[in-house]
Computed example of a mutant assay.
Amino acid sequence: MGSKNKLKRFSENETFSNVIQPTRDEVIKGFFLKGKWASHFKNENPIVLELGCGKGEYTVGLAKQNRDKNHIGVDIKGARLWRGAKTALAENLENVAFLRTQIELIDLMFVKGEISEIWITFPDPQIKYKRTKHRLTNPQFLEKYKHILKPGGLMHLKTDSEYLHGYTLGLLQGMGAKVLYANHDVYRNEGSPKEVLEIQTFYENQYLEKGKPITYIQFRIT
């Protein structure tokens, strides 16, 4: 994407009512929506997060399927989440918001138990050992998720990375988490939830064209 297109999207994001872009300092000093997301959505419906939402396909797709829930896509790359925000506005999806921030700050964006469900869709698996701290299902991140999730809140990991799938399953077993469902090839093995099969991201389509299996885990850490 050219720099002019990026600048245009950054500028449009500033005008979108469904895009929130706090600075790092604003988050650390006290994020204004922490514990008050119901005021943004103007209802008390459950909140579902998509972490590393990219173009927002899952956030928008889930919002269409679940109008009784509020959906927030989180990503640091504004030029990508612009697509999802624009689509949500065009389709009058009032249960959608996009939060541009670092996922490492996620526990500063919500109070304890404010989130009902978390989706992690096609994150960078960060396979190299020195990149473990950036892996979105490492123990440190899971602790952050545990803090903001309601008791019994669901987590979902959908990825093309067999490494990340296996790493996460092993980690969950070691910490005594409850794995509700795991599938190493969702389109060839039956039983996956409909939202796993019916919603596909930009990157997922690329992986499927290459014949890569798509894996999925549903689990609880609270």
Rank of each mutant, 00 (worst) to 15 (best):
M1A: 05
S3G: 00
K4E: 00
N5Y: 00
R9E: 01
S11K: 13
E14D: 08
E14G: 00
T15N: 14
F16M: 15
V19D: 07
I20F: 05
Q21E: 15
R24K: 14
E26G: 10
I28C: 00
I28Q: 06
K29Q: 14
K29Y: 08
F31M: 06
L33P: 02
G35H: 03
K36R: 15
W37G: 05
A38D: 14
S39P: 03
H40E: 11
E44C: 04
E44M: 03
V48Q: 06
E50R: 11
E50D: 15
L51P: 03
C53A: 12
G54K: 04
G54A: 11
G54W: 06
K55L: 02
E57N: 14
V60R: 05
A63F: 02
A63R: 05
D68T: 13
K69E: 14
K69C: 13
G73P: 08
R80N: 02
L81H: 13
G84T: 10
A85V: 04
K86E: 09
A88H: 04
A88N: 01
A90D: 13
E91Y: 03
E91H: 10
E91R: 07
N92D: 15
L93M: 13
E94I: 09
V96G: 03
F98I: 05
F98Q: 05
L99Y: 05
R100P: 00
T101V: 15
T101L: 15
I103Q: 12
F110A: 01
V111I: 12
G113N: 12
E117Y: 13
I118D: 10
W119Q: 11
I120N: 08
F122R: 00
P123D: 08
P123N: 10
P125N: 08
I127D: 04
I127A: 07
K130W: 04
L136S: 05
F141Y: 15
F141R: 03
F141K: 09
E143W: 09
H147Q: 12
L149I: 09
P151G: 08
P151L: 11
P151M: 09
L154H: 10
L154Y: 09
K158Y: 06
D160M: 06
D160W: 04
Y163S: 05
L164P: 08
G166Q: 14
Y167N: 03
L169A: 13
G170L: 03
G176M: 04
V179Q: 08
L180H: 03
D185W: 08
D185S: 15
V186S: 03
K194L: 14
K194W: 04
E195T: 06
E195D: 13
E198Y: 01
Q200R: 15
F202Y: 12
N205A: 02
Q206C: 03
L208V: 08
E209Q: 14
K212A: 10
I217E: 12
I217F: 02
I221K: 11
T222N: 15
